[in-house]
Design a protein around this nucleic acid. Structure first.
Lengths: 104, 104
DNA sequence: GGCTGCGGTAAGCGCTAGCTTACGGTAAGC
DNA sequence: GCTTACCGTAAGCTAGCGCTTACCGCAGCC
């Protein structure tokens, strides 16, 4: 059920911006906050949510805290959509076959 | 930017349940509401959000309103994550090459 | 040691999302 | 026509989310 956390995490626009910025490479909290219209603590809270969703990782360097993209959350999301797509297609196929059976 | 609507749409647990139920095949609003702990108008509102996100379609039959999965929204989401993944990989590769250059 | 810059956390606040009830509108059956 | 079942929308309420300010801890530097 971890894909649920990832979905709610990426639902917020600010969090999406943070995530998409991190895609370009690791960033410190301050660096991220400077490019955003919100305060640094707000960014900190967003990063916590993203981390809990398995979408980002953190690495301490001195007093700085560098965040980067974690592929695990992305993989879970991709798998979720893929499975969804497969089952939806299967159901569609079943329905089509049933309708064909009714016509006879 | 339609993937944003799809993400916020799928962030809500009730809406996810509705969407996953629809994966099994078309359902009327009443049928969906019966299997959920919320009222029928609530389901109606959720369906409106899902429709705006391009995730579901509706088809009127008499006084009933049948909803089914629309693949368009799913495709947009898949493309978004795919592009994200590609760019993240490219950035990672660039960073690795830069580090290699610094070592020399 | 003191100072500075870094960042996580707590407390509090406003606003929006999701829910409910109440209503109106339409199609089918008598 | 009347009634019934279906559904969408409006209005209103509440819980929670995202934000801010204030505070604290920690690492580096003088």
């Amino acid at each position: 059920m971890a894909y649920a956390d990832a979905l709610t995490a990426l639902a917020d626009p600010t969090r999406r911006t943070v995530f998409e910025t991190l895609r370009e490479g690791p960033r410190s909290v301050g660096e991220l906050a400077r490019g955003l219209p919100v305060s640094r603590p707000a960014v900190s809270q967003h990063l916590r949510v993203l981390k809990r969703a398995g979408l980002v990782r953190e690495r301490h360097v001195g007093t700085r805290n560098y965040y980067s993209v974690d592929g695990e959350g992305l993989v879970e999301l991709r798998d979720y959509f893929e499975r969804f797509w497969d089952e939806a297609l299967a159901a569609f196929k079943n329905a089509a076959e049933r309708e064909e059976g009714e016509d006879e």
